Computed example of a mutant assay.
Amino acid sequence: MRPPVSRAAFASVLLGRRAVGASLVAARCASSAASPAAAVTAYDHASFVKEIAATDPPEHLNSLLNVLQARGEKIVSPGAKRGLIPVVVPLSESPAGNLTSLLRWPTAPTGMEMPVVEVGKHGLWLLAKNVKQYIHRILVEADINADTGDDVWDAVGEAGENLYTKGDFKESQLADLDVYLLKKVGLFPDVIERKTLRHLEKGDNVSALITGEFYSRDQFPGFGRPFVFNAEILKRVGRTSEAKDSARVALKSPWWTLGCSYEEAAELAGWEDEQIEFIREKVTEEGKREDLKKGKAPEQVVLDEAAFLMDLACVDGNWDDVVDRIAECYREAGLDDVAKFIAYRE
C-alpha cells in the first residue's frame, strides 16, 4: 500500500487574488515576470514583499535588516533567488554563508505573518514565527553579549524600545537564556529542541517525551521539523513504533520543512523510496488524469503538482530546473500573484 500524501501548507481552498501595486510592476508584463532573462527592477525589501511577493511587508522589517547588518551579515537583494527554494525573500548572508530570509507561503492561512527562516541544503529552518519575535530574541541575546550588544541596539532604533528593555533578562532571575526566551519572547524550534535534549542528558525521559510531544502539537503550522525531532526522541527512548508514526506524519508536510534530508526522515519512518516514486507518478500526465477522474478539482490538481515538484526538488537539489513549471501551476490555479513571485529571480 502506498503511503498517503497530503500538504497542509498548500491549502486546498484557493486564496482570492491580491491587488499588486502598479508603481514598479506595471513595467513588467506577465511573460517578463516569468522569464529568467527578463529585465530586472531594483527593489528594496519592503517594496519587493509588497509588489512581487504580493503581501504586506512585516512590521519592523527595516529594523531587522539594520540589526542583521550590525551583527556582521551582508544584506542580500530580495530578488536574488536563483538556486534557492523559490518561496523565500532573501534578507542577509552571514560570514558562514547562512542565508536569513522571509518565507512567503504560497497559500498561507489568512492572518499568518511571514516567518523568518534560514535557507539550508535540504530546505528551510524556522528561526522565528515573525520579524518582531526574531528582533526581540536578538535584543535579548545582545543584552548579555558585550561584544555586539551596543551595535545591535544602535541599529534597531525605536523598534527596540517597544520590544525589550535593557537589563530585563538579568532582573528576571530566570535560570538561563533559553528559559527566558520561552517564557518572555516566544517559541523557537532550536530552543525547544535544546530543552528536550537536556532532559535526555539528565536521564529524564518522561520530561523529554512531554516536551517533544508539545513541540509537535501544531506550534509551528506547516512545518514537518517538530515531527521529525519527536520521532528522533521516541526512537532514542525505545518507542520505535511511535517514532515511525511521527516521522510519517512529518513526511505529509512539505519536505523542505523537515530540517533534515528526506532520506533521514524516511529512515525514521521505515520507508525507502516508496514516497518518491509515488510522487513522481503523481506529477506525470497520467497521474494528473487519474486525479481528475477521481473528481479532484483541476485547480487542486495543479496545486498538488506544484507542492510535489517542490518536494522532489528538495531531494534532487534542482530548484531552478522546476521553478518555471511550479509558477505555471499556480497561474493555472488562478493564483497569478503567487506565480509571479515564484518565477521572479535576478
Rank of each mutant, 00 (worst) to 15 (best):
G203P: 12
G16I: 02
V88W: 07
E141I: 10
D168Q: 05
K74V: 10
E193M: 12
T41P: 14
V13I: 09
D311S: 08
D316Y: 13
V191N: 14
S23N: 09
N66F: 00
S35D: 15
A30M: 11
V228I: 06
G72D: 09
G186R: 04
Q173G: 02
L303S: 10
E267D: 11
E328T: 01
A54I: 01
D154M: 06
F223D: 12
I210L: 13
V117T: 04
E171H: 04
S207I: 04
R17S: 15
F188A: 09
W319N: 10
D324C: 08
V322L: 08
F220L: 08
L103V: 00
S172L: 04
G157W: 05
G287C: 15
G222D: 13
E332T: 01
K166I: 11
E193K: 14
S32E: 13
R325V: 11
D291R: 15
A327K: 01
L102C: 03
D337R: 02
G72S: 08
P95Q: 10
P3W: 13
V249C: 01
R82K: 15
V119S: 11
V5H: 13
S23H: 13
N98Q: 10
A266L: 03
R2S: 02
S6K: 15
V87R: 12
M112K: 11
E281C: 12
E193G: 06
A26Y: 13
K183M: 09
K252E: 05
M1D: 14
F341D: 08
K129P: 07
R198F: 09
A108F: 01
V249H: 09
E193T: 03
R194A: 11
A46N: 05
L163I: 13
L124S: 02
K235F: 12
G212R: 07
V131E: 03
Y215C: 05
L124G: 03
S6W: 13
I144V: 15
Y134A: 04
Y180D: 11
I276P: 04
V117R: 04
Q275E: 08
V302I: 08
V76I: 12
Y43M: 08
E161W: 10
W125I: 07
H199Y: 14
L303N: 09
F308D: 14
L65N: 07
V40K: 15
P57Y: 01
V237D: 12
E213A: 03
G149F: 11
S101M: 04
I233F: 12
N318F: 07
W256S: 00
D218C: 03
E274M: 01
V323P: 05
G72L: 05
Q173S: 07
L99E: 03
L303D: 10
A269Y: 06
A250H: 00
Y330H: 08
V315F: 08
